[in-house]
Simulated scan of single mutants.
Amino acid sequence: MDVDRRAQWLRGVLDLCVLGLLARGDSYGYELAQSLQATGLGAIQGGTLYPVLLRLQRSGLVTVYWREGGGGPARKYYRISPAGVGVLREASGQWAAFAGGVGAILSERTAR
């Protein structure tokens, strides 16, 4: 896949993907990056992920707290807020419609 195209797509949906992962349960940055990679989105660097988390926090869509690490320093955990759940619910429907439209166009084009 074209790396620039992938990066553009990711910029458009990374906030929603992070909210979606946090809707499954609280998590910390490295764990979120690993989960994103495991879903096939590729390696997400901290310089990309942490600004997204800060933006989500500042907009009230996630909250943060510190949890003691097992044998290591405390970790900053992120939790989706009620406002974040609402945004995720609304955006999920919008994304499904958008992706369905794109899929329909692409499948029609390749079917010829």
Rank of each mutant, 00 (worst) to 15 (best):
P82V: 09
L54G: 09
G100I: 07
R5N: 05
G47M: 04
V52C: 03
L21D: 05
D15G: 06
T110C: 02
I105M: 13
G46F: 02
Y28T: 12
I80P: 01
D2E: 02
A38S: 14
T110V: 13
Q8Y: 02
G72E: 01
V64K: 15
T63I: 08
R75Q: 13
R6I: 08
Q94V: 12
A96F: 10
G72D: 10
Y78T: 04
G84W: 00
R109Q: 14
R89G: 04
V18D: 11
A38F: 08
W95M: 13
R75W: 07
C17V: 08
A7S: 12
A99N: 06
L54V: 14
A74F: 02
G40M: 05
G86N: 06
G42Q: 04
T39H: 14
V62Y: 01
S59N: 11
L36K: 05
L36F: 04
E68C: 01
L10Y: 01
S35W: 05
R112P: 11
P51I: 04
T48A: 07
R55Q: 10
G25P: 04
Y50G: 03
I105V: 15
P82R: 08
Q37E: 15
G12E: 10
L61Q: 14
L106H: 03
L21I: 01
V13M: 05
A96Y: 04
P73I: 11
G46H: 00
Q8L: 10
E31R: 13
L106D: 15
L22P: 06
G40S: 13
G70K: 14
G72Y: 12
I44H: 07
F98A: 15
Q57G: 07
R55C: 07
A74R: 15
G86Q: 09
D4A: 15
L21E: 07
G72V: 04
G40D: 01
V64A: 13
L49Q: 07
I80Y: 00
